[in-house]
C-alpha cells in the first residue's frame, strides 16, 4: 500500500494542495438561475458566436481557462499540466478548446464526474512532486449533449419528470502549492457501481449508488461521519438522486442531513426554470463548485467540504444495446481558509 493511502479507497495528500483560483463561464439559462450573480461570465448566446454547438463548448473552455489562470495571477506557461474533459465523443470539445495553449495535457472522461476526476489527479500530480501548478476543469453544453445523446433540439417531444437539464459552461480551477487558499487534503476514488438502472431519463437513480459508495468509503477510511463536514455536495443527482442517496445511506446507518446538497439542485430553480429533476452534465458540478462553494471556502464560511461529482457511464450504443447504466463518483475533501480545527 502506498504511504499516502489511508484505507481502501482514500489517500491523504502529504501537504494540502491549494486551490489558487476558480472560474466559471456559463450560458444564459444558468445565469438566470439562483447562482446567476456568482458566475464570472455569462454568455447570452449559447453558440458563443461559433458555428456549431461543439465549437461553442470549446470556446467556453478556452475563455474560462484563460480567465482562471488570470485570476490566479499566473500565466498559461506557468501551468505544468492541464487536465480536463467533456461529454462529446472522444472529448473533442476539450481538444479544440485547449490545443492552442500548448500545455502538457491529460484528457479525461469520467462523464459528469470529470470535475472530480480532474481535481483528484491534478492534486495528486502536485502532491507527488510532478508539478507546481496544474490547471483542471470540466465542461458540457446542453445543445451538444442533446444532439449526441438524445434528440434534435427542435423535436417536439416531452421530457419525463425524472429527466435532468445539461448545464452549459465550463468550470476550472488552478491548483498549486503555496498560499492561504482552500486545500484539497484527501481524495476518495470511486468505483464503477451498477445497480441495474437502465432508464437514460433517470440518471440520478443510476448515479446515486456510486455516490453512496464514495460516501461510505470516505467515512470508513477517514473515521468521519457525515456531520464532520460543513457541506457534502454531490455532482448532478438532482432531486430524485439526492433522495435515493439519503435513503441508501440510512440503510447503511448514516444520517444525511441538511448539510448534504447536490449541485444539480443548487444551480437551477426547478419551479421557474422547467429543469425537472435538476441540472446535470460535467459543467454542473464544475461551475457550481467554482461559483458557489469556492468563494465560501475562501471566506472560511465553509470549514470543510466533501465534493463528490457523479457520472453516468453510458453511450448511445451501450444504452441502445440494452446495457445497464453504471455510475461513477469521486470524492474530494476540501478544507477552507478559516481557522482549522485541530485534527
Amino acid at each position: 500500500m502506498g504511504v499516502k493511502k489511508i484505507g481502501k479507497q482514500t489517500v491523504r495528500l502529504s501537504e494540502g494542495v491549494r486551490i489558487l483560483a476558480a472560474a466559471s463561464t456559463v450560458s444564459k439559462k444558468e445565469g438566470e438561475g439562483p447562482l446567476g450573480k456568482y458566475f464570472d461570465k455569462i454568455v447570452e448566446d449559447s453558440t458563443f458566436g461559433e458555428k456549431s454547438w461543439e465549437l461553442a463548448e470549446s470556446r467556453f473552455i478556452r475563455e474560462n481557462m484563460e480567465l482562471v489562470v488570470q485570476k490566479a495571477g499566473l500565466k498559461m506557461n506557468d501551468m505544468d499540466y492541464l487536465l480536463c474533459g467533456d461529454l462529446l465523443n472522444q472529448c473533442t470539445a476539450s481538444t479544440f478548446g485547449i490545443m492552442d495553449f500548448q500545455i502538457p495535457f491529460f484528457g479525461l472522461y469520467g462523464a459528469c464526474s470529470t470535475m472530480g476526476e480532474s481535481m483528484c489527479l491534478g492534486a495528486m500530480l502536485i502532491d507527488g512532486g510532478f508539478a507546481n501548478h496544474t490547471l483542471v476543469g470540466a465542461s458540457s453544453h446542453f445543445c451538444g449533449a442533446e444532439k449526441q445523446f438524445r434528440a434534435p433540439l427542435s423535436l417536439g417531444n416531452q421530457r419525463p419528470p425524472s429527466a435532468t437539464w445539461t448545464v452549459t459552461g465550463d468550470g476550472a480551477v488552478v491548483l498549486g502549492k503555496k498560499g492561504n487558499f482552500p486545500c484539497i487534503t484527501e481524495i476518495t476514488t470511486g468505483k464503477i457501481m451498477d445497480m441495474g438502472v437502465t432508464d437514460a431519463n433517470n440518471m440520478g437513480a443510476a448515479m446515486a449508488p456510486a455516490a453512496v459508495d464514495v460516501l461510505i468509503n470516505n467515512f470508513q477510511d477517514t473515521g468521519r461521519k457525515p456531520q464532520d463536514y460543513d457541506v457534502i455536495a454531490t455532482g448532478d443527482l438532482g432531486e430524485i438522486g439526492r433522495g435515493l442517496v439519503v435513503d441508501l445511506m440510512k440503510k447503511e446507518g448514516f444520517t444525511m442531513d441538511g448539510r448534504f446538497t447536490d449541485c444539480g439542485i443548487e444551480i437551477f430553480d426547478k419551479n421557474t426554470q422547467d429543469t425537472h429533476s435538476g441540472g446535470s452534465g460535467c459543467a454542473c458540478s464544475a461551475v457550481t463548485f467554482c461559483a458557489h462553494f469556492y468563494p465560501r471556502l475562501m471566506s472560511g464560511e465553509i470549514g470543510s467540504m466533501l465534493f463528490i461529482p457523479t457520472g453516468a457511464l453510458l453511450s448511445t450504443t451501450s444504452s441502445q444495446q440494452g446495457q445497464n447504466i453504471p455510475g461513477i463518483a469521486h470524492g474530494v475533501v476540501i478544507e477552507g481558509c478559516g481557522e482549522k480545527e485541530d485534527k
Partner: peptide, 28 residues
C-alpha cells in the same frame, strides 16, 4: 455497499417509488 441481486431488486423498488410518474391524465 451491497451489490447483490437482492439489493439490486430492492434498489429498483426504491427508484420506482422515488421517481414521479409523468402526469398521464393531463398529458392524455
Amino acid at each position: 455497499m451491497d451489490t447483490s441481486k437482492r439489493a439490486k431488486q430492492e434498489y429498483d423498488q426504491m427508484v420506482k417509488k422515488a421517481s414521479p410518474n409523468s402526469p398521464i391524465f393531463t398529458n392524455c
